[in-house]
């Protein structure tokens, strides 16, 4: 197939495998790549008696998930086609490769495709006698959650959950403990995003939506899907509350709470703008009596080259702070190791 789109790629059909080859070479000290089915595993997998923490999803959100494979975070990531959840084969292979005898925890972002494919994989793994638990992340407050919808999307909270649960697994917490911790984190993390410009999926060749020069989308997800509301562009001082207020109101977060503030770039946003937005968010939280104890700023869960950002807030306690601070050594997050 010809390149029909302005991207640094050869063939849209092989873009994920082609990128994995580069990743494998760039991070040979951290990870191993297997191609059919596509799975990225930490170089020392399986780690005996450690719960295997496995995640995955469509590609195009890098560094999520493969960039978080390594000590103190994920044991394996299953990269699907661009914006397409992985297949059960991939997830099963990941579990098989990383199970060190203590079972596997699957971290699943709440999308119909992801839920169904991971569900099937979990059944297949169970049939092989591997104990598997699944936790679904659904932190996007832009989406209505009810029995009669697909529920909220999993977005920025996924990164925080993978770090924290990965740290617990690394310390030897068992499958029950990891699962409970994951549910706890999923229960107290909330996110919301906006886009200034859309992205183009390689095989689609056209932007996922179009915006006029003075328009932006509020409440976008991470798959180039349009948001819930199209509004005129506004200054950052008014954009940041448009993300933060729905988040604060949802859990809710309030005075006295201690939080981790994650200011995320969607892939095509200058770091300058992210830091600017982060500063505003910190100020707004301080005004509300909420203490920011930890922060993460950068493009960690992206939507190809989309321009925009998301904010994620996680309510912290001492346990979560300690696990957040624990050493981690992956391509995209690294400290203490």
């Amino acid at each position: 197939m010809e390149v029909t789109v302005k991207k640094i790629i050869n063939d849209p059909a092989t873009v994920v495998a082609d990128a994995l080859r580069g990743m494998e070479l760039a991070h040979a000290d951290l990870l191993d790549v297997q191609y059919d089915p596509a799975v990225v595993v930490r170089v020392d997998a399986p780690v005996p008696r450690k719960v295997a923490v496995v995640s995955g999803g469509g590609s195009g959100h890098e560094p999520l998930h493969a960039g978080f494979v390594g000590r103190g975070m994920l044991d394996a990531a299953c990269p699907g086609a661009v914006f397409t959840s992985p297949t059960p084969d991939q997830v099963l292979a990941a579990v098989q490769r990383t199970n060190g005898g203590a079972g596997a925890l699957l971290i699943v972002k709440n999308y119909t495709g992801d839920v169904l494919n991971f569900e099937t994989a979990a059944e297949l793994a169970a049939a092989e006698g591997i104990e598997v638990r699944s936790v679904v992340v659904d932190d996007d407050v832009a989406v209505k959650d009810s029995l009669h919808t697909a529920g909220r999307r999993g977005v920025g909270g996924t990164v925080l959950l993978e770090k924290i649960v990965g740290a617990a697994a690394e310390r030897g917490v068992d499958l029950d403990g990891c699962e409970a911790l994951a549910r706890k984190v999923a229960g107290q993390v909330r996110s919301m995003g906006l886009a200034l410009a859309p992205c183009t999926v390689p095989h689609a060749g056209e932007p996922s939506f179009t915006l006029a020069d003075d328009e932006m989308e509020l409440g976008i997800g991470i798959h180039g899907e349009p948001g819930r509301q199209r509004v005129p562009v506004r200054p950052a001082d008014s954009l940041v509350p448009a993300l933060l207020d729905p988040i604060l109101g949802d859990l809710p977060f309030g005075a006295g709470d201690r939080v981790l503030l994650f200011t995320n770039g969607m892939g095509g946003t200058p770091l300058l703008e992210l830091y600017l937005a982060h500063g505003i968010a910190e100020r707004l939280l301080a005004e509300r009596g909420i203490t920011v104890r930890r922060r993460l700023v950068g493009p960690y869960i992206t939507s190809l080259e989309m321009q925009g950002m998301s904010l994620t807030l996680l309510k912290l306690d001492d346990e979560l702070v300690e696990l957040w601070d624990a050493p981690v050594r992956t391509a995209a997050l690294r400290w203490g190791l």
Partner: peptide, 12 residues
């Protein structure tokens, strides 16, 4: 289809 498609359409 289950092994190759992924997404919602694969399992469905």
């Amino acid at each position: 289809l289950i092994s190759v498609v992924g997404g919602a359409a694969g399992p469905l």
